[in-house]
């Protein structure tokens, strides 16, 4: 089990309050694999330093979790299949 931190940028056209539930469904992947989600932090709409996919803003979310490498890989893959996800980044903090 390793600690991971994932940052996700979502489409700003989404309803901000639907973000948490929809992310939760994705985070089931982690929980089902025996990992744990320690923190789900929705920053909300934020102006980006440059446009991504022609959008000047994005909804940022940061998730801290503990899981196996395979689980985070699968989560990352599935998120990137979603059109509403503009970008993701997985980091192992302190590494």
């Amino acid at each position: 089990m390793r600690r991971y931190e994932m940052m996700v940028i979502l489409d700003p056209d989404l309803e901000e309050r639907t973000v948490a539930p929809s992310l939760e469904t994705y985070l089931k992947i982690i929980k089902d694999s025996g990992g744990s989600v320690d923190r789900l932090d929705i920053w909300g709409r934020r102006r980006m330093a440059f446009e991504i996919a022609k959008k000047p803003e994005g909804i940022y979310a940061v998730v801290d979790m503990k899981c196996e490498p395979a689980a985070i890989k699968e989560l990352d893959r599935q998120l990137n299949l979603n059109e509403a996800v503009l970008r993701t980044k997985v980091i192992r903090p302190g590494k």
Binding site: M48, R87, K89
Partner: peptide, 11 residues
Amino acid sequence: KNAREMALLPY
């Protein structure tokens, strides 16, 4: 560089 990738800082 990580922050740039996530559009937190400009390139």
